[in-house]
């Protein structure tokens, strides 16, 4: 059983193709780390996989309601407390894993503190705890370790390892070693080419052929 499969995917940022021919598959228990220089299109690829934007070409196939996405920004409401933030997402996803999520991400002491009074790293931990309360099997993460300290990175690495052990899968764009046994996919060879060299055409170009 494949949790997430991506075939011959081409993605565009603001209408300009950035990546093409990307393909991979995630089996249960597997993690895939995306690498590549800034601006190569990691975020665009992840947003496409998460279903936020349509692919230019190719397919993304995932079991229904299996993917959850963690973006650069955490979606944390600063006037709500840590517990309130997490409870909201738990209700949205229909789970009741708030207590365990707070315990796993070392947030229990902060439960009643307003998110406005959290440090950047603490806020990030809260954002990542949302992945736990989603109860979904495939985590798509964009630089999840930004602003985390060394201990928190290890903590989060352990959380992801538990996900994989429980039959989940993770797709991570990161440059930091999370201590996972993960395959690495370098996106540099998939950079979109010029049309004259076999690159994908954007929809408007196609009309001219």
């Amino acid at each position: 059983m494949t949790l997430l499969s991506v075939q011959d995917l081409a993605v565009a940022r603001a209408g300009v193709p950035v990546l093409q021919g990307v393909g991979f598959a995630l089996e249960p228990g597997r993690a895939l780390v995306l690498r590549g220089p800034n601006g190569i299109g990691k975020t665009t690829l992840l947003r496409t996989v998460a279903g936020l934007q349509p692919p230019l070409a190719g397919h993304v196939e995932a079991a229904p309601d299996s993917v959850t996405y963690a973006a650069h920004s955490d979606g944390v409401k600063s006037t709500l407390t840590v517990a309130e933030n997490l409870t909201f997402w738990a209700q949205v996803f229909g789970t009741d894993a708030v207590a365990t999520a707070m315990a796993r991400m070392n947030l229990r002491d902060l439960a009643d503190r307003r998110a406005a009074n959290l440090s950047a790293g603490q806020k990030r931990r809260l954002g990542l705890a949302r992945l736990l309360v989603s109860g979904r099997a495939v985590w798509v993460m964009d630089e999840p370790t930004a602003s985390l300290d060394v201990d928190s990175v290890q903590l989060f690495g352990a959380v992801v390892r538990d996900l994989l052990a429980a039959g989940g899968a993770a797709l991570i764009a990161t440059h930091i070693d999370l201590g996972l046994e993960a395959e690495v996919l370098d996106l540099t060879p998939f950079k979109a080419r010029k049309v004259s060299q076999g690159g994908v055409r954007s929809a408007f170009d196609e009309a001219f052929t």
Binding site: G15, V18, A192
Partner: peptide, 14 residues
Amino acid sequence: ARRLQALIARERVA
């Protein structure tokens, strides 16, 4: 204008 935009964008890819 749109075609021009598309061509410029395409040049920038490489």
